[in-house]
């Protein structure tokens, strides 16, 4: 006796598409949560009126500012206004720039992306090259030295390495400018400084991945077939070792794009969103803070989703299922 079979749904979303949609959904949710937290922390818990006005503002000035900006209204009403604006990308006027906050952020964003991308390229090239070099020579003195250097590099504070580079290459020997942007030369020092810790970390990962791939049987087969080492390297080794490298590399890029730029931009006076964020915090410019965090989070989430897609394409063994 056959049991009735559940009717299959007529249309079926491919698992990949479903996964992507899920990711976008959770990204939107995260953005909303971030906005909510920013609102809560800065507009409700902090005292925006007192903080934004100069120190010597009198109590009446603070009170009238507070009323004018609507900070006296019930929290829910403020929240609704905030969210409504945010969805339309209107975060209000930046108190420090006198322009719509979102415009200020969007002006600065391309600079940070330029810096982050350059840094990423440098990191990828140097990191993969050094890591592979160390990996195929695993266990030798050269490898050990490189490991030590890598560990050292990954714990160098960026503000210090930036300053050291400035001292070495901009003050003692004035090759590069000490700050600002606009010229290609100005891009060199900040991106090199920013690249050092990720290179250290990437070298470690690449070395590990290459080393373990070297031990796999198929590598022995390739060698015994008589394949030359550079061919073996390219055709077999790198492809198999690529997966963890890509995942770590992608992770580094997103971290770079948002967190990493903060310090470097401040040291080199690079006009990106990192420096903007620091300045906005120093002056308690709520509109600018909200706009910056929103854009930053959106960028990170977008990058993560793209990475996910790339990851799935790269290694078909990875299943796309519910985590």
């Amino acid at each position: 006796m056959t049991t009735a079979v559940l009717a299959e749904p007529r249309t079926r979303l491919s698992p990949t598409l479903a996964h992507i949609l899920r990711r976008i959904g959770s990204a939107v949710l995260t953005l909303l949560v971030v906005l909510g937290v920013v609102f809560l922390v800065f507009q409700v818990l902090g005292d925006p009126a007192r903080r934004t006005l100069p120190i010597n503002a009198s109590e009446e000035q603070v009170a009238s500012y507070r009323a004018a900006m609507g900070y006296d209204d019930p929290v829910l009403e403020q929240f609704w206004r905030f969210m409504r604006g945010a969805v339309l990308l209107d975060f209000g006027q930046s108190t420090t720039a006198g322009r719509p906050a979102i415009a200020v952020v969007m002006d600065a964003l391309p600079n940070s992306l330029l810096l982050a991308t350059t840094t990423f390229v440098i990191t990828a090239l140097v990191g993969i090259a050094l890591g592979t070099w160390a990996g195929v020579r695993a266990g030798t003195t050269a490898d050990r030295v490189l490991q030590a250097v890598g560990a050292f590099a990954s714990s160098v504070p960026e503000f210090w390495s930036g300053l050291v580079l400035i001292i070495a290459l901009a003050v003692t020997v004035p090759i590069f400018p000490t700050g600002g942007s606009g010229t290609a030369a100005a891009l060199v020092l900040p991106s090199v400084a920013m690249a050092i810790p990720p290179i250290g970390r990437l070298v470690y990962v690449v070395r590990e991945s290459v080393r373990s791939t070297m031990a796999e049987p198929f590598m022995l087969v390739a060698r015994s077939k008589g394949l030359g080492s550079s061919y073996t390297l390219r055709a077999h080794l790198l492809r198999a070792a690529a997966v963890p490298i890509v995942s770590v590399g992608g992770l580094e890029l997103t971290r770079l794009a948002i967190g990493g730029v903060v310090v470097i931009e401040s040291v080199f006076a690079w006009p990106g969103i990192g420096r903007l964020y620091v300045q906005a915090m120093q002056r308690y410019d709520i509109a600018l803070v909200s706009a910056t965090l929103f854009v930053a989070t959106a960028v990170v989430l977008a990058l993560n989703t793209l990475l996910d897609i790339l990851y799935m394409k790269l290694d078909p063994r990875i299943e796309v299922g519910t985590p």
Partner: peptide
């Protein structure tokens, strides 16, 4: 760092 700066400011 972003979280840290935000919290310390508040």
């Amino acid at each position: 760092i972003i979280l840290a700066i935000a919290l310390v400011t508040v």
